[in-house]
Write a protein that binds this DNA or RNA. Structure first.
Lengths: 141, 141
DNA sequence: ATGTATGCAAAACATTTGCACCTGG
DNA sequence: CCAGGTGCAAATGTTTTGCATACAT
């Protein structure tokens, strides 16, 4: 077995890690909960425990491979960290997540934080709103 | 017993509700977890169950008396809803919460959301950062 | 009185951890 | 071989719920 990404961050290349990374890279929706990943593994006929999924995702986060978000709704979601910063709009009804990047907001955030004695190295801006679609799709939970 | 605020929103005026509202109105820190409220009640020698605290806070939220925030760190926090909108900066190290309002960000949020087919009636912007104080105060958990 | 609220304990979740066993390098 | 990884079950922490009792109107 051989996986550049994993080796690069100093993680032993094990089957669970490879499979989980694979899922995060191939699945259409960019944001998955641990439970989502676990179910995807089962569907790929991989017998990997939920505890391992949590452990691996946490390691990936520490290694900078994924980012964890605590949106509303019980469980945290993970997304691949491609290095490009972006923020999120989450629909409070259907849980749909839309990514965006806005220069003006980024700059003002820095200013607002600085004025209040905060530095935002790692930061995340989440706007909770309601998408206007009559029938919110991608219903979460 | 007689409490305008509770009657106004159509909630029966009970001792737990009155006491919990009282705590939210008098306590210095504006943001409290259910557990925080529960402990404050015990300190006031009120024998109110934690389950009731959760039920009452949820009712208050539905009635528009308080707002619930799911910042990072396990438990949700509640604050009185005084009608004035504001956003939050949360220190990822010490959990300190600072409120702010920035017109430029508000306007851009609207635009960004609108461009993506979202309307933000109820919305919340949370910036996670790190306060610059050497020893982060107000340590949460 | 009577329907609603509360307290307690148990349930329901999401997540973490202890430990014996397995596996990658 | 052997440190580190994994599976399972049990522990944790937060929030919800069922049910018998207590209370506001």
């Amino acid at each position: 077995m051989d996986n550049k990404e994993l080796k690069k961050v100093g993680l032993k290349v094990t089957l669970p890690r490879v499979k989980i990374l694979e899922i995060l890279e191939t699945v259409p929706q960019r944001h998955m909960s641990a439970e989502d990943v676990y179910r995807a593994l089962l569907e790929s006929d991989e017998e990997i425990g939920l505890a391992t999924v949590y452990r691996v995702l946490t390691q990936f986060e520490a290694a900078g491979l994924v980012r964890r978000h605590n949106f509303e709704g019980g469980s945290a979601v993970f997304e691949l960290d491609d290095g490009s910063h972006h923020d999120h709009i989450v629909c409070q009804q259907c849980g749909e997540v839309v990514e965006f990047f806005d220069k003006v907001i980024e700059e003002r955030q820095q200013e607002v934080a600085a004025e209040r004695g905060f530095e935002i190295g790692e930061h995340a801006l989440v706007i909770y709103g309601n998408c206007v679609k009559e029938d919110c799709p991608r219903r979460r939970r």
